[in-house]
Amino acid sequence: MDILIYGIINSVSLALIAIGFTLVYGISRLPNFAHGALYVANGFIVWSLLNILQINYILSIILSLIITGIIGAAIYQFILIRVRGMATSEIIASYAIGLAILEGFRWGGFKGMTYTLPVFIEGSIEIAGIPVDFQRILAVLIGGLAIFLLWLFTHYNRIGLALRGMAQDERAAMMLGIDSDLMALIAMALGSILAGLAGVVLLPMGNIVVEAGYNVLILAIAVCIVGGLGSWVGAVLAAFMIGFAQIITVRYIASHFHMVVALLAIIITLILRPSGIFGRQKQLEERV
């Protein structure tokens, strides 16, 4: 039973972490290796707004998400836009940006165990005899809500539809008058906000540490590869698979194997089905 509950919590958290990465990749084919950095950055921004500027918590969160979105958009507009289409440069540039942000925080003194965000609601309840704190329940609710809203947005909103069009066929979308750069910019901002949101929701359960940035990046990538890069349904499904696999390993083997599970999942996926559960790259590539 606890496996079920913690499995769900863990899976939704993973989905929340991964959804931003997969959104950006799905729409603009940009692997945003700065994803984890944005996650952590948002945490520090909230912390600063809250503790240095003494702004109200909810307001801080909203402000921080806006700031993170702007940072993401700026990264695209000033840097990534110049290297689009060159896979190697995209990876190296975004990874370097991520490193610069993370290590910059570390250098700036944001390290150790001193930085924490308050939980949204104190306390916990018992579900089927297992105590679960409210923050974790909120995380599941917010994660589920975010995924649902994103789905609504991309299916019923004009911009959302344009984004989806681009994800399917960039050139055709451009011929229909969709501005591919603008869409990529929006995707990047949205992806960054999602990374930030994940940070806001998940960070209160622990400390804000720079290392989390790397972990989040790895987890996001693991989920996306297993689900098929760029596939949203795949990402959610993969989040549940990896999420439960992790909880089960932690329960029956050892708690340090969190990350190892993620790597194993990637390797198994790559061997069995390189395009992921829902990927369609492989097939398209062969087209003559």
């Binding site: 692997p31 290796f33 896979a87 190697t88 990876i91 990874y95 790895i218 990538i221 693991a222 590869i225 890069l229 993620a262 790597l263 990637i266 390797i267 790559l270 390189p274």
Partner: peptide, 10 residues
């Protein structure tokens, strides 16, 4: 491309 880079990073 991306896939190889990602895995080697991990």
């Amino acid at each position: 491309g991306v896939y190889f880079a990602i895995v080697t990073l991990m």
